[in-house]
């Protein structure tokens, strides 16, 4: 579930009710460590690497991933925080809110960017993120890491690193937090 959907849900007076825990805190931690190894393996280390968390759900995961990579490889990786609000394709359809100010510690030209988000769903947030990244320089490559891939893609986008593939119904919601991953529904109050 994207931040936009979360807020849209609150606006119409519905609340998120968890139905089942899919991953616990230890599962999320193990998945992050595995993804950290995969990123290092695929890119042969941390040279030119930049992690970019998507506001707001991707940012804490990107921070933890940066810690995991530093713990394995011993080198710190630059960490950016990207807000894609102004690049969304649903601006003409509904009020789009900026989550937070973007911060990009380095120019992205010739860097390898790993975009990090909590849940991959329609792919529209990632599409917006790719456009937003282009305004920070021409990356040599962009890869995508997500904690949960829940399917229902509307665009030709696929993740490079996945914590868990989770089959879902379209109307279900997936929430990722420090405590783990839960699946649930929006229920009228």
């Amino acid at each position: 579930m994207s931040g936009t959907e979360r807020r849209a849900a609150r606006e119409d007076g519905r609340v998120f009710v968890a139905r089942a825990a899919v991953m616990d805190a230890a599962d999320v931690r193990r998945a992050l460590v595995r993804i950290a190894h995969e990123i290092l393996e695929r890119n042969h280390g941390t040279a030119d690497l930049v992690l970019v968390g998507l506001q707001s759900g991707g940012v804490p995961l990107a921070e933890r991933l940066a810690e995991a990579i530093a713990a394995i490889d011993g080198t710190p990786v630059p960490l950016g925080r990207l807000d894609v609000a102004f690049y969304r394709d649903d601006i003409p359809l509904r009020p789009v809110r900026a989550e937070s100010v973007t911060s990009m510690p380095v120019e992205l030209t010739d860097r390898v960017v790993v975009l990090v988000d909590d849940v991959l769903f329609t792919g529209r947030t990632v599409r917006a993120a790719l456009d937003a990244l282009a305004d920070h320089g021409r990356a040599r490559a962009v890869q995508l890491a997500v904690m949960v891939d829940r399917g229902h893609r509307e665009l030709p986008i696929r993740p490079d690193y996945v914590g868990k593939n989770l089959p879902t119904r379209r109307d279900e919601l997936v929430e990722v937090s420090e405590k783990g991953v839960v699946i649930g529904d929006l229920v009228a109050r």
Binding site: A85, F86, S100, V101, M104, D131, A132, D135, G137
Partner: peptide, 14 residues
């Protein structure tokens, strides 16, 4: 948020 946009190499959003 838009102040940050102004500091980018390409200070423009779609």
């Amino acid at each position: 948020s838009f102040s940050e946009v102004a500091e980018r190499p390409i200070p423009k959003v779609p």
